[in-house]
């Protein structure tokens, strides 16, 4: 999950923040940390909702709305709790929580783990791996983009197209890990 099925470059979840926030290393690292924490949180929440509530009652059709609703509310509550009791952590990574509540990566990992029918521990490990992969790619990307700011780039390729080309090369590099998959 961390390298072979990288969540950004292979699964294409969380591409928007990946492009938007990867302009300097520090904020990228903090953002990645917040996202990884929320990924583990969301996979735990989604597993317990799906296997303890939705499946016994035969409500699989309502998965989408219930997942999204509970995740949005729980992340809001988490944000409030952190704001009150853990001021230091909150000021570092908590500011990204409202943006992340509706992020593809955080919601996507919930659906991904339920679709694959993982057990609780398996889904926790998978989401942690995905989070680490997200941080890794975000750091690499932001350090490359910081360097490209001072370079001469053809006019039409400035900004987004260049970011996409860098991402493509990174994805090709990650394909080299394909042999690690079981």
């Amino acid at each position: 999950m961390m390298l072979v099925n990288n969540i950004v470059l292979v699964k294409f979840l969380g591409v928007c923040p990946f492009l938007g926030i990867s302009k300097n290393i520090k904020s990228a690292g903090m953002f990645g940390l917040a996202a990884a924490a929320l990924m583990v949180f969301s996979s735990a929440v989604s597993w317990s909702i799906y296997h303890l509530f939705l499946k016994p009652f035969g409500l699989e059709n309502l998965t989408i709305i219930i997942f999204i609703f509970t995740l949005a509310i729980l992340i809001e509550i988490l944000d409030l709790i952190m704001h009150k009791y853990f001021e230091k952590i909150h000021s570092a990574i908590g500011i990204y929580f409202p943006i992340l509540a509706t992020n593809c990566a955080i919601v996507g990992i919930a659906f991904l783990t339920t679709e694959e029918n993982y057990s609780l521990i398996h889904s926790l490990i998978a989401s942690a791996g995905a989070g680490v992969g997200f941080i890794l790619v975000l750091l690499i990307m932001s350090s490359i983009r910081e360097k490209t700011e001072t370079m001469h780039i053809p006019e039409p390729f400035k900004g987004l197209p260049l970011a996409f080309i860098i991402a493509a090369v990174l994805a090709m590099a990650l394909m080299g890990f394909g042999g690690l998959a079981p």
Partner: peptide, 22 residues
């Protein structure tokens, strides 16, 4: 069909639209 191909296609399309816009 693979992941990098998608990224490259989008990059080239955006560059193309930039060129035509200018």
């Amino acid at each position: 069909l693979l992941a990098p191909g998608a990224l490259l296609t989008i990059a080239l399309l955006i560059a193309l639209t930039n060129i035509t816009n200018t």
